[in-house]
Amino acid sequence: MSALDAMYQQLILEHAKSRSGSDLTADEATSMPHQPGVGQCHQLNPVCGDEITLRLELEAAGSQPTVKGIHWHGDGCAISMASASILSELSEGASPDELKEMIGHFRELMRSRGRLEPDDEILGDAAALAGVAKYPARVKCAMLAWVAAEDALRQAVASGR
């Protein structure tokens, strides 16, 4: 294992343990808030049982809204929990377009089967998950929170109009 792979593995384990953004309670996860600029999505990986409920909040900031925060409740493997934690940190302060770009790059990386190098400037710490792309059975684990965020963002933008 290279030094970079070891560093990435350590980052994944730290995020899986500390879980940034996992402050949505089980009760909050079962009720959808009806507020402008808020979206929520539940995703389940039926193959392994990983699941997440993710709530995304936008706030008005000048001419374009920004992501105020991503809050989630979930249970699953280290990859899915670390991925949600990393996404929660990366998304804060991003515009909807910037978040869509991040999600698109992450999806492309995960679908590459390890042939693409991550763009650290766009993906930040999510680049640590690049090695997952070599294992198709684990890609869904890494994508779970990102798919939920994509749908929650769509809802939040639509409800904020």
Score class of each variant (00 low, 15 high):
residue 17 K to Q: 12
residue 57 E to C: 06
residue 74 G to Q: 01
residue 23 D to W: 09
residue 131 G to S: 04
residue 155 Q to S: 07
residue 153 L to R: 10
residue 127 A to R: 06
residue 136 P to R: 08
residue 53 T to A: 01
residue 60 A to N: 11
residue 72 W to C: 05
residue 57 E to V: 08
residue 13 L to E: 14
residue 69 G to C: 07
residue 100 K to A: 14
residue 64 Q to W: 01
residue 6 A to S: 10
residue 86 I to A: 03
residue 57 E to Y: 02
residue 42 H to D: 05
residue 53 T to S: 05
residue 67 V to G: 10
residue 72 W to S: 03
residue 121 E to K: 08
residue 107 R to I: 06
residue 32 M to V: 15
residue 30 T to K: 15
residue 48 C to E: 14
residue 49 G to S: 01
residue 21 G to F: 11
residue 35 Q to C: 01
residue 22 S to A: 14
residue 133 A to D: 03
residue 156 A to Q: 06
residue 43 Q to G: 13
residue 17 K to H: 14
residue 12 I to W: 12
residue 74 G to A: 11
residue 116 L to V: 11
residue 112 S to D: 14
residue 110 M to A: 00
residue 89 E to A: 13
residue 151 D to N: 12
residue 89 E to Y: 02
residue 13 L to Q: 14
residue 100 K to G: 10
residue 34 H to I: 02
residue 146 W to Q: 05
residue 38 V to T: 13
residue 159 S to I: 02
residue 6 A to P: 00
residue 139 V to I: 15
residue 27 D to K: 09
residue 19 R to D: 11
residue 143 M to W: 12
residue 105 H to L: 02
residue 160 G to D: 13
residue 23 D to E: 12
residue 51 E to S: 11
residue 36 P to M: 07
residue 83 S to K: 09
residue 160 G to W: 04
residue 38 V to D: 07
residue 138 R to C: 02
residue 84 A to V: 13
residue 51 E to Q: 15
residue 76 G to D: 10
residue 72 W to L: 08
residue 141 C to Q: 10
residue 144 L to D: 09
residue 98 E to P: 01
residue 91 S to G: 15
residue 155 Q to R: 08
residue 96 P to G: 09
residue 72 W to Q: 07
residue 125 D to H: 02
residue 9 Q to R: 04
residue 3 A to P: 01
residue 141 C to N: 04
residue 96 P to E: 09
residue 151 D to Y: 00
residue 28 E to A: 09
residue 115 R to V: 08
residue 62 G to V: 06
residue 116 L to W: 11
residue 96 P to N: 06
residue 105 H to C: 00
residue 128 A to F: 03
residue 33 P to R: 15
residue 6 A to H: 07
residue 133 A to Q: 04
residue 7 M to S: 02
residue 102 M to F: 06
residue 136 P to M: 08
residue 64 Q to G: 03
residue 125 D to Q: 13
residue 123 L to I: 04
residue 13 L to G: 01
residue 91 S to L: 06
residue 91 S to K: 00
residue 64 Q to Y: 07
residue 88 S to A: 15
residue 37 G to M: 01
residue 161 R to F: 10
residue 88 S to K: 09
residue 102 M to D: 08
residue 90 L to D: 08
residue 51 E to V: 01
residue 88 S to E: 04
residue 87 L to V: 02
residue 148 A to V: 08
